[in-house]
């Protein structure tokens, strides 16, 4: 089974709110605000694909990413972790903030790849947080989709997947070809890879397809756009923290409890 993992590099998601700012004109954070990294859920999706390959469920893993410009580090990393192939859609003329346009590029690339039977995407990229691309890809390829998966195994001729659902965990059976969106789990921390593999990855080719290569006209790409950004801003954090200190822990805890009662937020009397 051939698996394709949809990757994206995003602004370091651990950048503290105090350092975050928005370029009002561009309606997004400036490019030099921090490093670009593979998004956390994309890392989980990549790890799940590699685990399925280790288990023999998947025979081939392709890393696919749409981004403008030069090949990105994320694809090198995927190759260093023994993905079989890395493909970049050189996304000139597309807006990474629009999930429908991103999906249009990825669908065209998936159609060109050799019969992918499993498409893995992160549940949402931690920049725009749309949580849409995996599902839009599924709909446009006419494939079933299961969201928020954190574990998958072979179960006869289908996959058994574990996913987060309201009120607990569901185990679902899904017949490939299918799309899974992946959420975080202790078991899906992306592996490190060896130094040897990292060096070897620098010599491996990255396939680059332009928008024209994929047969997408600029008009078609423009028509795929769904969201118009009116304004983006970083909300002020207005709260003022009242620090409660003292020498005796018991006294501090007692003060916390009585302050919460004064604020009418906590009541200890039944």
């Amino acid at each position: 089974m051939h698996a394709v993992v949809l990757l994206k590099e995003i602004l370091d998601w651990e950048l503290p709110a105090s350092k975050f700012r928005v370029d009002d004109e561009a309606k997004r954070p400036p490019l030099d605000l921090g490093p670009s990294l593979l998004g956390p859920f994309e890392q989980n999706a990549l790890e799940l694909a590699l685990q399925l390959k280790d288990a023999g469920v998947v025979t081939r893993v392709t890393a696919l990413l749409a981004a403008p410009g030069e090949p990105v580090d994320g694809l090198r990393k995927a190759l260093a972790l023994r993905c079989d192939e890395a493909v970049q859609v050189v996304a000139e003329g597309a807006d990474a903030a629009d999930p429908s346009q991103t999906a249009e590029l990825l669908v065209a690339a998936l159609r060109r790849l050799e019969s992918p039977e499993l498409v893995l995407a992160g549940r949402q990229a931690g920049d725009w947080d749309h949580g849409q691309v995996g599902y839009l890809v599924a709909e446009r390829l006419g494939l079933p989709a299961v969201g928020l998966v954190f574990r998958a195994e072979r179960d006869g001729d289908r996959l058994r997947v574990w996913r987060v659902a309201p009120g607990g965990v569901e185990q679902l059976g899904v017949r490939p070809p299918a799309v899974l969106t992946v959420t975080s789990d202790a078991s899906l921390q992306l592996r490190m890879g060896s130094v040897m593999d990292r060096m070897a990855a620098n010599k491996k080719p990255i396939t680059r397809w332009t928008v024209e290569d994929l047969g997408l006209s600029p008009e078609r790409l423009a028509a795929a756009r769904r969201l118009e950004i009116v304004r983006t801003w970083a909300p002020e954090i207005e709260r003022q923290c009242e620090v409660i200190d003292g020498d005796d822990p018991a006294e501090i805890v007692a003060t916390v409890l009585s302050r919460l009662e004064e604020l009418k937020l906590l009541s200890r009397s039944p």
Binding site: L11, W13, L15, A17, F20, V22, K27, P29, G126, D127, W128, D129, R225, R226, L227, E228, I229, V230, R231, T232, W233, A234, P235
Partner: peptide, 18 residues
């Protein structure tokens, strides 16, 4: 006009739908 949260809650974005 829809306001949504992005960047892990660090940004708010107003959008309209095409």
């Amino acid at each position: 006009v829809w306001t949504r949260s992005a960047y892990g809650g660090k940004a708010l974005v107003e959008v309209t739908a095409a």
